[in-house]
């Protein structure tokens, strides 16, 4: 059967979710990819991912969004997790200051394991908890500025800005790819990114139809 598959896309981008345990990474993922939210979601163990495609400037971008436990992970997971990622959403909980204080640690992990040109968003999640806010937006924005991160506040619970956050991340990744910021990647050739399916991470996906 030679239909054009639904898998057709121009780019495949791997985006990783990182941040402390309980800040809402899994719910951001499910909100964005399935428009679901689960108040009683279990802690994430191991690695999971989900995909969703969006269109940016007429190009279909398939986002593969990875999610893992917030706590320290086993080494084998960590390296595989960051491998080939072109975007990272560094999530903290606006109602828990400690999760914001740990951002430094997460940035360091990114520097240690991810591509230098990875797009990083600082995401303050749970804005629905207005009355419990412990991290001021200004502080976070300033921090983001200082560290060259894109800053955004979201609520996976009421959907505020979730779409926008991922869009922004993907837009920025797309921009960098278009400008060939990812040094180890040559458009149209097999990338140096050491991952299998993501070999085409930032490549234009050539789709052939045999019909």
């Amino acid at each position: 059967m030679s239909f054009q598959g639904p898998e057709e896309y121009d780019y495949l981008f791997k985006i990783v979710l990182i941040g402390d345990s309980g800040v809402g990474k899994s719910n951001l993922l499910s909100r964005f990819t399935r428009n679901e939210f689960n108040l009683e979601s279990k802690s994430t163990i191991g690695v999971e991912f989900a995909t969703r495609s969006i269109v940016v400037e007429g190009k279909k971008l398939k986002a593969q969004i990875w999610d893992t436990a917030g706590q320290e992970r086993f080494r084998a997971i960590t390296s595989a997790y960051y491998r080939g990622a072109v975007g990272a959403m560094l999530v903290y909980d606006i109602a828990k200051h400690a999760t914001f204080e740990n951002i430094d640690r997460w940035l360091k992990e990114l520097r240690d394991h991810a591509d230098d040109n990875i797009v990083v968003l600082l995401v303050g999640n749970k804005t629905d908890l207005r009355h419990l806010r412990a991290v001021m937006s200004e502080d976070a924005a300033e921090y983001a500025d200082r560290n060259n991160l894109i800053f955004i506040e979201t609520s996976a619970l009421d959907s505020t800005n979730v779409e926008h956050a991922f869009q922004q991340c993907l837009n920025e990744v797309y921009k960098r790819v278009a400008d060939r910021h990812f040094s180890n990647v040559n458009i149209g050739q097999t990338t140096a990114l050491p991952t299998t399916n993501l070999q085409s991470t930032i490549l234009e996906k050539k789709f052939c139809c045999n019909s």
Partner: peptide
């Protein structure tokens, strides 16, 4: 054959839990 197949990511949770 897969570059990172032997990471066995898919069964970490099986072993952990």
């Amino acid at each position: 054959k897969l570059q990172d197949g032997l990471d066995l990511l898919f069964c970490h949770r099986w072993l952990l839990l």
